[in-house]
Amino acid sequence: MSEIAQKVKEIIIDKLGVEESEVTPEASFTNDLGADSLDTVELIMEFEKEFNISIPDDQAENISTVGQAISYLEKNVNK
């Protein structure tokens, strides 16, 4: 697992209070991990802070699973 993927998982576990085993690539923040709309906004903000990037709203809307978050960040961090 990449360093980014590991960090993303840690943030999700911390913010959503879920078990590591639940944080699979397919897991949806809202449907599987119990996040509401505010939790999702907070997650995106944490990713921005951790990786020091800015995620535009229209792209944030497309990040609804763990895998989507990891692949977005892997593509856009440090470029």
């Binding site: 505010l38 907070e42 903000m45």
Partner: peptide, 9 residues
Amino acid sequence: PRFNPFFIP
């Protein structure tokens, strides 16, 4: 502005 979404509630 980078306010937490839970700030107000």
